[in-house]
Design a protein around this nucleic acid. Structure first.
Length: 377
RNA sequence: GGGGGAGUUCCAGAGCGGUCAAAUGGGGCAGACUGUAAAUCUGUUGCUUCGGCUUCGGUGGUUCGAAUCCACCCUCCCCCA
């Protein structure tokens, strides 16, 4: 399921397989399609075009609309969105954070009032597992509480203890569902999620506890939610030595191109982030030279592509002037092209990281790009 | 020819004696965005050597003080002939 091919320092080069993917090459960036679509008008065929290896969708959102029962009846999420590659589903734990004003947390689970129509929705570990089972994703994420930073120590402690109890319930329900005769994807894997806010002792304790549950992979959650970047790196440094070496590690929701390089350097294999799609829709384009704001006046007459060294379908065909025009004219084609470019960049970034690892020069790669990619050009 | 209405900062459009460099939209310029309630949100938008200076169709006037009141002129719109 996960094969560690090579290491350089703490950085890892690996291969991950699941029911819909022979070998996902890691480190990998998962392309985010929350509602079974990449925002900005990008579909499953486009995902192939931009080099996506694995897609991510969301339990809470698909449960609300169109409903996981419906998706199950229509043959599962892969068929529904016509993506036959690997899919990881986030559990709804992030919505405990992002929809904080619309929910109440109890021991049994979380009571949401739907952000769409206010309807009362209960989601606990078992519900999240059932929904993800109905979706038939290849990797289900444990239902957790993503705690906002900065957090009070006592709250973070009680929360990660509860998240541990929830993981035990997730595991039990997940195993039960996988064994049912009519399960959509009986090969579905389960990843546990580490929490503990910015407190190294909580993080390490929690990681050691969840490691005992023998999940198929382990994620670090609850980062990039308010704390300074250096604190995020420090927490990864603290937790990583306690993560099972032979299992994939996923840093949830992260991040900027340089966050990804720094995450790899700290032993992370999987990443996901809305940044390439959201920032793309907002006119911010990632390149090897730094970030381009295509809306800036200086691009109005620029006939060059967004990046001379980018091989993406957008840079091969269109100029900065044209892209800027599309944004200014509010043509949705602009959003689509920007998102395609950014996803291509993120997928290429991880491809280059893998290449560097394969050739034993990741340290050089990191030194060259980690800061450079944060520049604005 | 007669009657009525209107001209405000890039645009639309408030303001109708001082608290007006002038509301609010739009446009322009810039910024934010990290397991997506986000094609969203925020700032800024006359000039300035930061003391002030020049703006509300034009000219002249009333007033301590005018985008706001008066006179004439210019332009545009509507109705009647």
């Amino acid at each position: 399921m996960f094969k560690l091919l090579k290491t350089e320092g703490r950085a890892r080069r690996g291969e991950f397989s699941c029911a819909h993917g022979g070998a996902v090459q890691t480190p990998v960036f998962m392309n985010v399609g929350t509602q079974a679509a990449i925002k900005g008008g990008v579909d499953a065929f486009d995902l192939r075009e931009v080099g996506c290896q694995i897609e991510l969708s969301n339990t809470y959102h698909l449960h609300l609309r169109p409903g996981d029962g419906l998706i199950r009846r229509l043959g599962g999420l892969h068929k529904f969105m016509n993506w036959d590659g690997p899919i990881l589903t986030d559990s709804g734990g992030f919505q405990v954070f992002s929809l904080a004003s619309l929910r109440r947390i109890k021991e049994e689970g979380v009571y949401f009032s739907s952000h769409i129509d206010g309807q009362k929705i209960f989601m606990g570990p078992e519900e999240s597992m059932r929904i993800q089972s109905n979706l038939g994703s290849d990797v289900a994420m444990a239902f957790d509480e993503c705690v906002e930073n900065p957090a009070a120590y006592e709250y973070a402690k009680a929360s990660c203890q509860r998240t541990l109890r929830w993981l035990e319930r997730c595991k039990r329900e997940h195993d039960r569902l996988n064994a049912l005769p009519d399960t959509v994807n009986p090969g579905q894997l389960l990843f546990g999620i580490n929490q503990g806010a910015t407190f190294p002792d909580l993080r390490v304790w929690h990681m050691e506890e969840i490691a005992k549950l023998d999940c198929d992979g382990y994620a670090i959650g609850g980062l990039a939610v308010g704390e300074p970047t250096q604190v995020m790196y420090d927490i990864i440094d603290a937790v990583e030595p306690h993560m099972p070496r032979e299992k994939p590690r996923y840093l949830m929701g992260v991040g900027t191109p340089s966050n990804i390089i720094e995450g790899v350097a700290r032993g992370i294999d999987f990443f996901d982030c809305v940044m390439p799609s959201r920032n793309g829709r907002h006119g911010k384009l990632f390149t090897w030279e730094g970030t381009v704001n295509i809306l800036n006046a200086k691009h109005a007459t620029d006939d060059r592509p967004v990046s001379e060294r980018c091989g993406c379908p957008v840079c091969r065909r269109f100029s900065r002037a044209y892209l800027r025009h599309l944004f200014k004219a509010e043509e949705t084609l602009g959003l689509r092209l920007a998102v395609l470019h950014n996803l291509y960049f993120y997928n290429e970034l991880t491809a280059k990281i893998r290449e560097a690892l394969d050739e034993g020069r990741f340290a050089d790669f990191r030194a060259e790009y980690s800061e450079k990619l944060a520049a604005r050009v």
